[in-house]
């Protein structure tokens, strides 16, 4: 299953290495990872998407990350109400005929044109992974020259639904 894990880490050199090294050591495969500063410049936030077999593996991942000295907090966001976004830059081949057609196509995706040249156009789109995948599929027939995706970043919503069952990691 797909898991979105968020880790608050000290903004020190090597910390990302430590985190990804741990995932390698324990045989977790990272699908994507984003890192950036938080409101405190000494602290960074890492959001990673990983595939794990079952809940026990996911629990183990959170606990192992938590053991690292310069990882401050780890949360499994998967079952939380959250806002998550990914950004993609897509360079599509164009001809004078298709240029306006593409502009029409991307409108419902709220994608914007960042750059135009005679042979191609570069688009920016933000949203969840499925939306980006859908747009890419739509544009594929025109010829995609290059794609660059950021990976998911996420934040839990301000209000969470009340859950009756206990938090799975209460023993920490």
């Amino acid at each position: 299953m797909r898991r979105i894990i968020s880790a608050t880490v000290l903004n020190e050199s090597g910390v990302l290495n430590r985190l990804t090294g741990l995932l390698t050591k324990r045989q977790f495969n990272i699908e994507n990872i984003t890192v950036g500063h938080t409101e405190d410049p000494a602290v960074s936030k890492v959001t990673l998407t990983v595939w794990v077999e079952d809940d026990r593996k996911a629990e183990q991942l959170v606990k192992q990350l938590h053991k690292q000295i310069n990882i401050l907090k780890v949360r499994d966001l998967t079952n939380m109400a959250l806002v998550s976004r990914e950004l993609a830059l897509i360079k599509v081949l164009t001809t004078p005929d298709t240029r306006s057609e593409i502009k029409m196509l991307i409108e419902p995706f709220r994608a914007t044109v960042l750059d135009v040249s005679l042979e191609n156009v570069t688009l920016e789109v933000t949203g969840d992974g499925e939306k980006i995948d859908a747009l890419i599929e739509l544009l594929r027939p025109y010829g995609i020259k290059e794609i660059s995706r950021t990976g998911v970043t996420a934040i839990p919503r301000g209000t969470q639904k009340k859950v009756l069952e206990l938090h799975p990691y209460s023993i920490m």
């Binding site: 026990r56 629990e59 183990q60 606990k63 938590h66 023993i171 920490m172």
Partner: peptide
């Protein structure tokens, strides 16, 4: 003392960190 050891290999009903 290490929470990551609990449940790592053997499913545990009573975890005590």
């Amino acid at each position: 003392i290490d929470p990551a050891e609990i449940g790592k290999n053997v499913p545990t009903e009573i975890p005590i960190v």
